[in-house]
Design a binder for these strands. Structure first.
Lengths: 145, 145
DNA sequence: TTAAGTAATAGTAACCGTTACTATTATTAT
DNA sequence: ATAATAATAGTAACGGTTACTATTACTTAA
């Protein structure tokens, strides 16, 4: 990543200018508004380079495509299993765990990936509503998982 | 998963009889020793069914294919970033974190995925050796990442 | 300031893990 | 036994990602 490129700058800007945690497709679409004929391969290559350079973070979401985060500060993610949205969590992880593991096992922890899967408050409300419907009206709405 | 099948039983046995955390290819190879013409699709389908039924666990390793674990007890994984081996960790995760997150954010955590990436003790030794070579002989060996 | 050297690119093909499809086989309840 | 239908083998398709290749555009130094 020694030479500058307009494409890479544009990709970085797109990611830095959102607080969402976009996937490649979304990034590709956004960048094409600036550079209509940019190649998808260019997007992938530069995302890798930018992540390696530490300018962005690459998230891995179980069972779905890569996502990226322009916020490289130390934070974790809450993933709603219903709506798929990703929320930021600025909660420190117990730092003692690494020392304890090293003592016990000899394994040297370098990175902790703590992913918390659950329901965001919006989806909890929906679940509540759904329950009410079911109990009140004996209506069962399927396929919401 | 209402009817029994020889294929599914064989797949389950293969996974239960190893303490490694095998991927689909390895499982497929092992099962073919018993059932040579088993279909790869059958392996995938039954792995999904067995995981849904809670008889095995499906692991997701960042940037690599699915792996499975016949040990469904509550434990976590240490992943060596050098050799790729997966080690079991029977260390409880701070349970207070879930309550704290709910209080602060309203997000209801259902599952914690704590993956610890680092170096196993074997690979640490190799790294040490490598450093020694470099310092002693000014030999640089590349590509070991 | 131009020319040479070579990253980076666009466009496309290939790849790989996984899922979907379909005709056939095997299991279960009657 | 027979009917109903899960489950299978074999194969095709799929989606995300990477690899390839000829071309373009930075950068350095003459």
């Amino acid at each position: 990543m020694s030479r500058k490129s307009i494409q890479r700058d544009a990709i970085l800007q797109v990611i830095k200018n959102t607080t969402s945690h976009p996937g490649v497709d979304w990034i590709y679409d956004e960048v094409r508004k600036e550079i209509p004929n940019i190649s998808l391969g260019t997007v992938y290559r530069n995302l890798r380079l930018l992540a390696q350079a530490g300018e962005i973070r690459e998230l891995d979401i179980p069972g779905s495509a890569k996502r990226f985060d322009g916020d490289t500060s130390n934070h974790r993610h809450l993933i709603c299993e219903k709506c798929g949205r990703i929320f930021d969590l600025y909660e420190a992880v117990d730092p003692k765990i690494e020392a304890r593991i090293f003592q016990k096992t000899g394994f040297k922890v370098k990175r902790q990936y703590l992913k918390l899967i659950g329901l965001c408050s919006d989806c909890q409300k929906q679940e509540e509503q759904l329950k009410t419907y079911i109990y009140d009206n004996s209506l069962i709405k399927g396929g919401e998982k």
